[in-house]
């Protein structure tokens, strides 16, 4: 992966506490209520949002790194800020909504190049990867994305 070669840049997450920075096996970080066991992503920090649960004890847990494509779309035009385009000339990209079987929830993410919306099909297997969101002169800003599992879908 190319970001190991440019050692001069600091590699940082696009947001703190949402995912691990393991380049080979990144994980989304959610929280789980210690009382009712329900999951949250983005990680809920203060209070359990289950209206039947009063708990304030939420622990950080790694979420499934594979799931099923619930649906997808793409951006043919550049989204407004705070979106930051990684390239000077905007390049369309796909977005994926992936259902996690264990946590029973759907989590969005961009789809990394070279995959486009034309490579996607509802119901196929997707896996979590770490990929640059954009770069500055000093930093490479990383985010989680969903990539099709090779040979692992209904394609």
């Amino acid at each position: 992966m190319f970001y190991f070669t440019a050692v001069s840049k600091k590699v940082i997450p696009a947001i703190e506490g949402f995912f691990t920075m393991d380049p080979e096996a990144p994980r989304l970080l959610g929280t789980q209520c210690k009382a009712c066991q329900t999951y949250f992503f983005p990680p809920e920090r203060g209070y359990c949002r289950n209206p039947e649960c009063d708990s304030e004890e939420l622990e950080t847990v790694e979420l499934s790194h594979e799931g099923t494509l619930w649906s997808y779309s793409h951006n043919g035009y550049k989204p407004p800020p705070p979106y930051v385009s990684p390239t000077e000339e905007f390049e369309p990209f796909a977005v994926a909504a992936v259902e996690l079987e264990r946590e029973k929830m759907v989590v969005m993410g961009m789809v990394p190049k070279p995959y486009t919306h034309e490579d996607l099909k509802v119901g196929q297997r997707m896996q979590l990867v770490l990929d640059p969101l954009y770069e500055t002169d000093e930093e490479r800003v990383m985010v989680w994305k969903w990539r099709p599992v090779e040979g692992g879908g209904s394609k």
């Binding site: 947001i15 649906s71 997808y72 779309s73 793409h74 977005v95 993410g109 961009m110």
Partner: peptide, 24 residues
């Protein structure tokens, strides 16, 4: 902020998700 910065999700992207789901 999260949806625009981290996923690049515009409003039409949500409509796109529902539309693709209808197709599937």
């Amino acid at each position: 902020w999260q949806r625009f910065r981290l996923v690049g999700m515009t409003n039409p992207n949500y409509f796109g998700l529902y539309a693709r789901r209808r197709m599937a």
